[in-house]
Measured scan of single mutants.
Amino acid sequence: MAAGGDHGSPDSYRSPLASRYASPEMCFVFSDRYKFRTWRQLWLWLAEAEQTLGLPITDEQIQEMKSNLENIDFKMAAEEEKRLRHDVMAHVHTFGHCCPKAAGIIHLGATSCYVGDNTDLIILRNALDLLLPKLARVISRLADFAKERASLPTLGFTHFQPAQLTTVGKRCCLWIQDLCMDLQNLKRVRDDLRFRGVKGTTGTQASFLQLFEGDDHKVEQLDKMVTEKAGFKRAFIITGQTYTRKVDIEVLSVLASLGASVHKICTDIRLLANLKEMEEPFEKQQIGSSAMPYKRNPMRSERCCSLARHLMTLVMDPLQTASVQWFERTLDDSANRRICLAEAFLTADTILNTLQNISEGLVVYPKVIERRIRQELPFMATENIIMAMVKAGGSRQDCHEKIRVLSQQAASVVKQEGGDNDLIERIQVDAYFSPIHSQLDHLLDPSSFTGRASQQVQRFLEEEVYPLLKPYESVMKVKAELCL
């Protein structure tokens, strides 16, 4: 049975990233139509530049190519590739079939990587351009969430054990800070992308030097003109047959890092959902379990974690691919890159769409948070109580021993009897502590235990987050809708 299948058929496997999760716009960027249309555009740009620099290419040939950029006979191309065992030459023939007058000058002087690699770089750039505003929107939604809850005390956790208090907004800023680093890295790697350009079979530009009869300047002009037509500021000066596969490492490393950030955020949300302090959106008709109707599973956060793990592992592909590119190139890269580049971007696209949807509907339960604080705060307040007693004339050592005994009794009630923490009640009825009984409410005010959390939130948002989001103001209103 021949390899390949009808990918629109229910009898043929289709990647869930495309069929179930990723956005239509990201799927289109990695589609065959987008790819092969870009090949034709690159052939047109090459012909236009070659004509401008004096090669015998007519206006009629150029116009014929322009008129057929979208006229792609995919069936013919597939048949040609089956016959020739070469995808680029299959599309040269297919393009030439609908451009008979231009057929002889299509791909003039070029090698397969002229269309293959340059198209990949265009796709990487455009895919990054799709991700950047999506990530900015996630940051914006979380920034709104953090600002609104900047002063809401909550129990902090280290080692997932109760620690000092923080605020809900401050905790959210930990998430935002990681995503801001990801946004900066995505922008950097996007701006650092260079075009492969017009380089020939081993990167020496020998074929173009021959076409222009040894004119170095025209060869350099050709490279520059096509690079500018493709919208790049610069091209690699040095290439082998391909652009260095280190570029793929750079791009997928940034995406993998984004995956790590999203995994951490969504894990926190899942843990908070278990504590009943916070939940992701839950639709009115949504079913959490087929057997347990009360369940409210954090399905979206779980999906993000599941896909983020996949995204983090994909960076190993370009690392290994770059390491086995012998001399000017081997074909070890080809099949692998067809999979890992598309999957990385479709996965990143999915987790950003999902995280935006989550961040637009996060639900906080202040009463649950308050109750958990009441359970733990008495123990945390013991040092403040000791200091207040010393100020009232008591002995630190005597007070410490009193607190120690009462704390152990209260802990026994919590752990052995399943009761509430009654340390404060014990202190309130103990005559030894009568000098500070009137101060206990103040000493137990949760806001006095959150330090500068709310001020940190305000400063972080104003100095770091809002300036970073400013270039994306025009796209901030787009909502994230999930079908599944």
Rank of each mutant, 00 (worst) to 15 (best):
L319M: 12
R303N: 15
Q456I: 11
R338K: 13
V405D: 07
M278N: 12
G197T: 00
L252I: 04
K66W: 15
S261Q: 08
G169F: 02
L222G: 06
S67W: 03
P366I: 15
L186W: 07
E360W: 14
A22R: 10
Q164T: 01
I424P: 12
Y294V: 09
L341H: 05
K295E: 00
F327P: 02
Q439W: 02
L469Q: 01
E463Q: 12
M389D: 10
Q375W: 05
T158D: 02
A103L: 05
E148V: 10
K470T: 04
L69H: 04
L209Y: 00
A235I: 02
L271M: 10
L341C: 05
D333W: 15
L53T: 03
A150C: 03
V247F: 09
E473I: 05
G109S: 06
D117G: 06
L314D: 06
I373P: 10
S395N: 13
A102R: 06
T267F: 04
Q210P: 06
K367Y: 06
E481Q: 14
I105L: 05
R309S: 08
I105G: 06
G169D: 10
F460G: 12
Q210S: 05
Y21T: 13
E220V: 10
M380V: 12
E425R: 14
T52W: 03
L42V: 04
S253F: 04
L255T: 14
N336K: 08
I176F: 02
N68V: 04
L128R: 07
D32N: 07
L331D: 15
A344Y: 00
A163P: 00
K187M: 08
S448F: 14
E425A: 11
N336D: 07
D332A: 06
P298A: 09
C483W: 03
R452Y: 04
A49T: 09
R296E: 11
F460T: 15
Q177I: 06
D333K: 04
D445K: 08
E383T: 08
Y365H: 10
F460I: 13
A47C: 01
E383M: 13
S23M: 12
F232G: 07
Y365F: 11
I287Q: 02
Q375R: 10
E462Y: 08
Q286G: 05
G288N: 02
T111N: 15
T167W: 12
R270W: 14
K284Y: 13
H159T: 02
T38K: 15
R20H: 05
S261G: 13
